[in-house]
Design a protein around this nucleic acid. Sequence first.
DNA 1: AATGAATGAGACTTCATTCAT
DNA 2: TATGAATGAAGTCTCATTCAT
Lengths: 187, 187, 187, 187
Amino acid sequence: MKHHEQARNKSIEHIKLTALGLFSTQGFAQTSIRKIAKEAGISLGLLYNYFPSKEALLQAIFQQGLADIQASFVLEKVQNPKKRFANYVRQTFQMIQEKRAFWRLLHSIRMQSSIMTLLQTETELTQSFIIQQLSELLTDLEIPDTPSKALLLFATIDGISNHYLLDENYPIMEVGELLIQQYISKP
Amino acid sequence: MKHHEQARNKSIEHIKLTALGLFSTQGFAQTSIRKIAKEAGISLGLLYNYFPSKEALLQAIFQQGLADIQASFVLEKVQNPKKRFANYVRQTFQMIQEKRAFWRLLHSIRMQSSIMTLLQTETELTQSFIIQQLSELLTDLEIPDTPSKALLLFATIDGISNHYLLDENYPIMEVGELLIQQYISKP
Amino acid sequence: MKHHEQARNKSIEHIKLTALGLFSTQGFAQTSIRKIAKEAGISLGLLYNYFPSKEALLQAIFQQGLADIQASFVLEKVQNPKKRFANYVRQTFQMIQEKRAFWRLLHSIRMQSSIMTLLQTETELTQSFIIQQLSELLTDLEIPDTPSKALLLFATIDGISNHYLLDENYPIMEVGELLIQQYISKP
Amino acid sequence: MKHHEQARNKSIEHIKLTALGLFSTQGFAQTSIRKIAKEAGISLGLLYNYFPSKEALLQAIFQQGLADIQASFVLEKVQNPKKRFANYVRQTFQMIQEKRAFWRLLHSIRMQSSIMTLLQTETELTQSFIIQQLSELLTDLEIPDTPSKALLLFATIDGISNHYLLDENYPIMEVGELLIQQYISKP
DNA sequence: AATGAATGAGACTTCATTCAT
DNA sequence: TATGAATGAAGTCTCATTCAT
């Protein structure tokens, strides 16, 4: 019984990983279920045993991807505000490099409302979670916090990430350091 | 002679406009040629009289869209650097609001390499053109210009635009003003 | 008036010639009416002024082509039988070379019954005309004439023609001489 | 496992046979994939499960058809040259009657270069194989063998076949006997 | 006489999904 | 659990033909 469950989980993980890879490089719409099954080395039918639809597969990938991200984002409370801010930015960009496939998928479909409605619940939570964190960081830096300021910082981080996702050779960490300077060296 | 030309041009413009609207709201892949023809009130065949393929239609839309953009982007040489910078940012966000449909289309497909290869020529020129302008603006502001600094500014502008394109109610001009402050109030 | 008629005839001839060229090299089904009009340098509408349908155009081409052929086929009555036979064969292969385009068209569609029904009247006449001529030639050569003998000779000539039409470099005249020998040197 | 394979093979053979029949009577271009599927009693999609394109289906039919033909063509080495020649001709025409559908298809598309390029590899081999056999037969008959002589014989056989393929009531065997006489009764 | 805009049926092909084994 | 045969709707594109100008 337990053996079965393990095998099942392994298969599921394998499928999700394969699908994520394909979605990320070829796009969600351009990736057929057949391709995924073939690449994963399983049959079409088995894939449908685990995921009742292509969209369900996407949802499963998102659920896990977002959970992973939130897990990475524990604000270190101990340090001084500037260090905390710097670490946060570095951690973020580090994570985006590590989870590049997932982030590419997210950025490539987030403008397709027909798909995003499926993922609304998951993503909205994450989004407000991030805005909340940025807001706290700014407050700690004694920057008079207005909602717009958090939006600007968020847009900047998101823009840098986006350019890195578009171009693997983008100097994300270098630009990240510049961003840190910009916020820390305030008079 | 003239009559045919007029009818032709009117049809072509009408088709491009309709297609841009649909591509922008529903996505390129999700918009069928049939939907475009129906929405434009013409037959499927007529569309193919003017555009030999769906991709050719996209290319035509892009050609015109990018030309429009470049036309909007004449740097005003006369003013002092700070004003010039402020105006540039305001102009940019103004234009993105005016050409929202086109920008949404661009942002929604730029991660799909299979499509982007078709548009490479057009987009690459525009991209380097923008980076060049930003670089000049920074130099004029007496900010020691490094490539990364222009990249950071570009990413910020792009990120703000992106968030506005994702959410029509995003306070783009407000965040824009904050961005201007950030670069102008440097000691 | 007369001027108009001449212009009209010139146009008609031009269209038929252009269409024959395209039908011959690309095939009847593969050649669109549009291609013909464009290649002939006229408008789609004008072509339809002269020919009410694609099939009518084909019929017109056939009518003229077969008339041309029959005109070429006047048996020279004056000579001795062997010379007459030899000349006939040479004339035939000569003509096939001269009217290669038309013959290619004929051979390429004669197995498509859907098209051939349109041309039945024209082709059947020509076919029996040829068989009749071959029959006469064989009688004159004092070869005991049976229907099958004419059929064999016809098949041979047709086979050689066919291979020449399939391959422009086929030594049609050389094989023709061999054929002549075969029938003339009979004991 | 075995069940799937059987179903698969049965389907594939059934489709190829149905398609050959339709291609042969209606022509390749005139036969739509939908017609084939309907006639075969299967869905359109299933056909595409087995053959990735209409052209691939044609290729598969050709591959098998030509293999069948070559298998039929084993020269009987044991007899005297005249008998061997006679048997060869009879066998050939016998086979053409048995595989009439395939031969009609071949003869109906061999002038369409756009299609023939797909089949080049397969057909060229068969063609030179036949010419080689004819050449040997002529040599054995002590007919001074020149390349043209084999070409003439080939053209004759091909011409007879062609006329039989055009008209099911053509007396192919009778004409065949005449052809045999022609080559055997040489002084 | 001449143009080409406009039509719509039909062709090939893809793909998510179901189901018997 | 696992397979892949089977389905059919929908997509892109072609083309002969009509008609207003």
